[in-house]
Design a protein around this nucleic acid. Structure first.
Lengths: 197, 197
DNA sequence: TGTACATCAGTGAACGCGCGTTCACTGATGTAC
DNA sequence: TGTACATCAGTGAACGCGCGTTCACTGATGTAC
């Protein structure tokens, strides 16, 4: 039952994608290797032809989703702030509440990542640094390190707001938290644009 | 081996405290009932004389820690902002990195709380609302709902910064994230005090 | 106050279950001649 | 191009293990008389 190299690569990618969905939806601890493999249509044993351990998969699944996140935050330097507002809207969207398997892996796996293996935390750190770097470009006319400090504050606010809104069981409060922080970040961005023009 | 009512109450409290420590340190999923009972010097079977299920313990352990958190954030209205700065320093302290079992239960259990039982999430929501209410009092001279919105932003920033700093594996970046957000919040508070005086 | 009895905190073994991982095996693929 | 063989993706059963929960039992406590 050997498969071609192309097929093997596709299978590997499909496992990573299924894992990312399950980890984000149900948590890392709560998701089993057999469950992930079943989603892809395979049995548990085959897993170890692609990965050394579940931990390795965690790191790769996180990295894959974080790459998407960073790429989507990347806006051209001249693209204006409309695009940035769009991104804010997207990240702090009400649609990300409840059953999320898209969205930000930092929010979805947050406290589990802090307890993950050294390897996973290292990958996670890289993703966070990339995100800070990209967000720093959002700040027009500011020079490092000020833009970088601003980016850290923005990211902290977004991660915190998304985390809180997902814990809260009152849908109105959930939405309120997202809206308040979204508005605050947008206002602050607009003020900076104004100061530059 | 029946115990007096007083002894039983003490045991119950000790179980909750041991659980809170373990849940915050190692995560909810990763902590077993037997492990918690062993910490208290008892065997697993006795657990069900005090609680219906592990889930119930999760809710009570969270509530106990959150009460402490809310109480420590509660500063008298006239106590000045020095006390508030002290609190900021405390919450965003570098000491809370690494092996935390004190500190904020929202940060320590974050993404696991979002997936907890309805009962646990309800308790968690109440704690968050209490905290927002207390933080709103920090804002001198502002009236609701503006003070409340400010409190939500402050809490989001703190939760996000603490979460990020715990994931990152570079100690310098961890400290940097905490320092930047701490400074930003303190500056914003000072500006408001100045505007009032 | 003293006695008889119901209560119930805690024990320790057992329950079914799902976990991550291993392993002998299968058979299509890729390669060497 | 055709044949022989090594490779290796995937199977499915098994491994030891720890999980949350149950249960018959023990014996000190609290209560009713």
């Amino acid at each position: 039952m050997k498969k071609s190299k192309a097929e093997t690569a596709v299978t590997r990618t499909r496992i990573i994608e299924a894992a990312a969905q399950a980890f984000m939806r149900n948590g890392i601890e709560a998701t089993g290797v057999a469950e992930i493999m079943a989603t892809v249509g395979l049995t548990a044993g085959g897993f170890y032809r692609h990965f050394d351990s579940k931990e390795q998969l965690v790191a790769e699944a996180y990295a894959a989703r974080m790459d998407i996140r960073v790429a989507s935050a990347e806006v051209g330097q001249d693209e204006g702030y409309q695009k940035v507002l769009e991104h804010l809207e997207n990240v702090l969207s009400v649609a990300n509440l409840g059953d999320i398997f898209t969205g930000c892996p930092i929010v979805a796996m947050g406290s589990e990542l802090a307890r993950a293996s050294d390897e996973t935390r290292h990958v996670a750190s890289g993703g966070i640094q990339d995100l800070v770097e990209v967000l720093a470009k959002w700040n027009p006319g500011e020079k490092p390190p000020f833009a970088e400090e601003d980016a850290i504050c923005t990211l902290s606010s977004m991660v915190g707001a998304a985390t809180l809104s997902r814990i809260v069981d009152d849908p109105e409060l959930s939405t309120h938290i997202l809206d308040v922080v979204k508005k605050r970040l947008a206002d602050s961005l607009r003020a900076k644009i104004g100061a530059c023009a």
